[in-house]
Amino acid sequence: MERVPIEPVSVPHLAGLSPADTGNPPIGPLVKAPAPVLAPQIIGARGLAKTYPNGQRVFAGVDLDIRADQRVALIGSNGAGKSTLLKCLIGLLPTTLGEITTLGERFLAASSAAQLTRLRRQIGFVFQNHGLVGRQSVLTNVIQGKLGLPGSWRAFHHALAPQHWREEAMAVLAEVRLADKAGARADQLSGGQAQRVAIARALIRRPRLLIADEPAASLDPAVGRDIMRIFSDLARDHGITLVYTTHDMQHALDYSDRIVALKGGKVHFDRPTARVTARDMEGVFHG
């Protein structure tokens, strides 16, 4: 496995160089370079391993360090363990070995019920199949994103929700360009529209971390790209850390800052997207 350390956010510095060395005119007294500033850690994992009760190993020896505001694509072929790893990282599934710290919650193997509750309040989810309630309106589906937050018992139907939630839901629907569909039933939407509603439902939670499991897998290529663009743009605009799984190489290259590739139950590579080559990607899925 080739690992590239996460590049710290830092300013260019001239420590140790004289003006003559650089060829630039002196610009005043030289100061010591500031320490590298790392964005806050969102997910940290050390030595993760997951084996099913029937003995089937999903992955082993996985280390991850995901920082705030990153858009991370988790790639791998079918059955590589992407979705399982994603669920383990947010405490929805227990691991067999290893230590995880997600959004400040540190747990070994399995998260406690209290940790899981705290984690869920800070995470937005989007699934491959949008998981909307078909017979409910789009507005109700978006407001249902509030369920699980404190005092959210009125969120199961828009008619019972407080007015400011209704307004907030309309605002996020506008962000995914579906405000005009607020009153439509969710089962009357196209696949792409339904997935945009699912994004709005995740956004209304104001999450720090947005988790998406194959968000564009069931959509045609054009709609899939549109969904990924919306995802990526909204995550960047709202300062949300985005972690998503995909087996579409182009989606990973176009809509992430960093790619983590799983292969054979191991991290095959983990590096900034700008440094990932077509050959690297081919290596994940073939050979």
């Binding site: 998981g131 309630v133 369920l147």
Partner: peptide, 15 residues
């Protein structure tokens, strides 16, 4: 699927 989606965000059984 909708049930799993709501469970995942922490909705209780009644919700």
């Amino acid at each position: 699927k909708p049930q799993e989606a709501l469970h995942a965000i922490g909705a209780n059984r009644v919700s």
